[in-house]
Design a protein around this nucleic acid. Structure first.
Length: 572
RNA sequence: GGGCCUGUAGCUCAAUGGUCAGAGCAGGGCGCUCAUAACGCCUUGGUUGGGGGUUCGAGUCCCUCCGGGCCUACCA
């Protein structure tokens, strides 16, 4: 039995995410996790909220709440949304957990022991009015290059010139607008990634099967300019993991915390530890997923993320792990995604453009979104959400092809044989051909799922559904019933068994509908169809079932128009 | 500016350098009547963004131009 460790990029805490965040990491990760479990493999699927950093502090302040309270609340909100989308995390943790504090401090201590931490004294902008150091992009002013008056300290959005905050004319805090700024000396820890460049480079070069999107971004950072640069891993903030060297104080670093991007990936490990603690399991239960010397030798580790996360997962986090000198599990495969765009533009949290996760769930069941998003996953390039496409795809694939199949066969059986699987008859050539066609397509489906070819897997699954309609059309039990009721009984029995088969195969994509289908067939047999012929004998003659409610109601033109209007911008 | 990705049917996408560039949707025709006016079969539709080159052979490799997107290290 294979063992799969699966992590999804951890969503930031500062608000409810839009659909792009869902399709870029959590949803495909869930698809893969569900598939591997369905195949009988052992799976550890973890995710968490990413809770540290300046934006979290500012969002909390805006909400008028202490940051820890704000994060605890938002964690619950996000956990609830994730549950309602059917995201099957074994644990949904928090990067602010005590487990992550300990592990982050542990890694920093090991890196320091190995000479991979440098203490650097630098000058940063401090805002007296805000009482905090300001990250470059939180400083605004007039661009010295083009005169644009809302240039940010890292770059001018108008002329795209790279800037240093001290270049700005009349700089002010982007938070309060205060011009009472000063440059202060402050000391920070840097992770000496440059010292690990060769090792990282060879490691990346060995990953020849990774998506181009993943490796090209990594190589750019490794080779651009002077090569991989060291990265500051501490910040002058109140909220975060206090800087410590293992469990010891770090002289000179009092009052500082680790940089969010240092502790966030470590949360993958910590979330697994949180899982063990939450379930009353001893530490070796989680360590067997992460420590090569404690049982993780046969684990395959797959990460899912949007392309913006790639540098941290291909370089910074591996540098942390390799640099620790300890046998922690490195990622085996990184599946990265492009962006989902909304009606020709970007989803925008600030402008309320596009559909947010809570809104999506408030208008349609999760499976509608799961199906559309996964079958249109932005694998090769960015993909676009439009209401027309969404309505068309969902109505056709889910309502017409799958839902109507379930409806027509169950209702036909009820009217001719009652709500019990009918007896009699045996397979002819048509049924043999169907089994053969199903087998071919199911094997292809497995291959695509194994390879995380999400769109291709969706296409194949849809083609499997279509086979059911093709069979019914040519078998025509409504005709055979008139001349040969036994044959019609066999055809109907096969059709009803297809519903269970489809539920099992479709469950990674549309888990809620799959559950409804199994419930209607009054079975909980989720055995994977390694033998298709046997799988179609699962429900025997005499087995009672229910005609289910409409599985997928269609999206009407009126609904589509209303939603299009409602979500075009300026969130209520 | 630099780097990377991308451009294939009206739309969304496929195609280890090798038959006539294929699917789904949309459009058109026919069939069926079990079904959510659903399903099935057939079918229209292409100078693969433009131009040049390498090759026996290019959607695929090279050069160049045009369009779209992303990244560029203190947002995460």
């Amino acid at each position: 039995m294979a063992r799969h460790l699966i992590t999804s990029a951890i969503p930031y805490i500062n608000g409810i995410k839009h659909l792009g965040n869902l399709v870029g990491s959590q949803l495909p990760a869930d698809l893969f996790a569900r598939f591997q479990r369905a195949r009988g493999n052992e799976v550890m699927f973890v995710c968490a909220t990413d809770e540290h950093g300046t934006p979290a502090e500012l969002a909390a302040a805006k909400a008028g709440k202490p940051v820890d309270v704000f994060c605890a609340e938002m964690h619950q909100v996000q956990a609830n949304i994730a549950r309602r989308f059917g995201l099957s995390f074994d644990h949904f943790g928090r990067s602010s957990s005590p487990q992550n504090h300990r592990l982050t401090q542990h890694f920093a201590g090991k890196l320091a022991e190995n000479g991979l931490i440098a203490e650097v004294s630098e000058r940063q902008v401090y805002s007296n009015a805000d009482g905090r150091f300001l990250p470059d992009r939180y400083i605004e002013g007039t661009c010295p290059n083009c005169g644009y008056d809302k240039a940010r300290g890292d770059q001018c959005e108008n002329c795209t010139k790279q800037l240093d905050p001290t270049d700005l004319i009349e700089p002010r805090s982007a938070i309060s607008g205060s011009t009472d700024l000063e440059v202060r000396e402050t000391k920070h820890l840097y992770l000496r990634q440059s010292a690990l460049r060769q090792e990282l480079s060879e490691w990346i070069d060995s990953k020849t099967d990774w998506p181009i999107l993943t490796t090209s971004i990594a190589k750019k950072w490794l080779n651009d300019g002077e090569g991989l640069q060291d990265r500051g891993i501490t910040r002058d903030l109140d909220w975060g993991v206090p800087v410590k060297k293992g469990d010891q104080p770090w002289p000179g670093m009092e009052g500082k915390v680790f940089y969010v991007w240092f502790d966030a990936p470590i949360e993958y490990i910590a979330a697994t530890a949180e899982w063990a603690d939450a379930n009353g399991k001893p530490a070796d239960e989680w360590r067997r997923w992460w420590r090569l010397d404690e049982g993780a030798g046969d684990v395959r580790y797959t990460q899912f993320m949007g392309k913006d996360n790639v540098p941290f997962h291909t370089l910074s986090f591996p540098a942390t792990i390799i640099g620790s000198g300890e046998p922690w599990k490195l990622v085996d495969y990184i599946k990265s995604f492009n962006y989902l765009t909304y009606d020709g533009g970007q989803f925008s949290t600030s402008q309320g453009r596009g559909v947010f996760q809570d809104q999506a769930l408030s208008i349609l069941p999760a499976d509608y979104w799961r199906w559309w998003l996964l079958s249109h996953a932005p694998e090769g390039s960015d993909s676009e959400f439009t209401w027309e496409n969404f309505q068309q795809s969902v109505n056709k694939d889910l309502a017409d092809v799958l839902g109507n199949f379930v409806s027509r066969i169950t209702k036909f059986c009820r009217s001719k044989f009652g709500e019990t699987i009918p007896e009699g008859g045996s397979y002819g050539p048509e049924e043999q051909a169907l089994v053969q066609a199903l087998t071919t397509r199911i094997r292809a489906y497995e291959g695509f799922m194994e390879a995380m070819e999400v769109r291709k897997a969706a296409n194949e699954l849809r083609a499997i559904w279509v086979l059911g309609n093709e069979y019914l059309q040519s078998a025509a039990p409504w005709s055979t019933f008139k001349t040969d009721p036994e044959k019609a009984a066999m055809q109907v029995r096969l059709g009803l068994n297809l519903i269970r088969l489809y539920a099992v195969l479709s469950q990674p994509f549309i888990p809620f509908a799959a559950d409804s289908m199994l419930a209607a067939m009054r079975t909980d047999d989720r055995a994977w169809p390694d033998d298709v012929s046997a799988a179609l004998d699962t429900l025997p003659a005499g087995h009672a079932f229910d005609v289910p409610e409409v599985l997928f109601a269609k999206i009407t033109d009126e609904q589509r128009d209303e939603w299009q209007e409602r979500f075009k911008g300026a969130r209520a």
